[in-house]
Amino acid sequence: MLDFLTKPWPWYISGPIIGLTVPALLLLGNKSFGISSSLRHVCAMCVPAKIPFFQYDWKKEVWNLFFVGGIFLGGVIAAVFLANPLPVKIDPVLAQELAGYGITNFDSLIPTQIMNWEQLLTLKGFLLIVFGGFLVGFGTRYAGGCTSGHAIMGISNLQLPSLIATICFMIGGFVMSNWILPIILSL
């Protein structure tokens, strides 16, 4: 049992449980599943700066901050009690390609050789960590949602705008991963 728990879980177990988040939040208190709005609530809470987009009663959305706080705690619990002792298994073709950019350590879920505090001050690290994060925050709010709000919640509720947004997420991801990221990783 413990062996099963510490190994990576297959998609057909985790996917449906992630899907169950949708009815769980709806039935616990009429909340629509969405994560990127938490970033907006932080802005409204900490630096509203008289910007109309941040002038609303964020306290009414505080459940969302509890939810993302839970995701953080879930990460802590998984890492402390259910850690996978083996390196992350990845496709050999991808492993070989990444090795060409000096990424050879697969011990963590993130590429620690290019994402760490020292790398932050290099151009490559800055683009990956700071610029990437900026695009995530700017893009999700501009699109009105992220993978959870649009791809899972929106499509589940048969919303065409969410399908369009999800297709655009995928196009952006393919372009970055296949054509732009190789240039950044060679920096």
């Binding site: 990460g75 700017f138 009105g144 959870s148 297709i167 655009c168 393919f174």
Partner: peptide, 30 residues
Amino acid sequence: QIYGGLLFGLGWGLTGACPGPLFAQIGIGA
């Protein structure tokens, strides 16, 4: 949804994370 979607997609491919995973990644100690 188109412009923002494309920009978020670029960020997703770069950071390897959408907003939810960012919180969990910090949780695992990154």
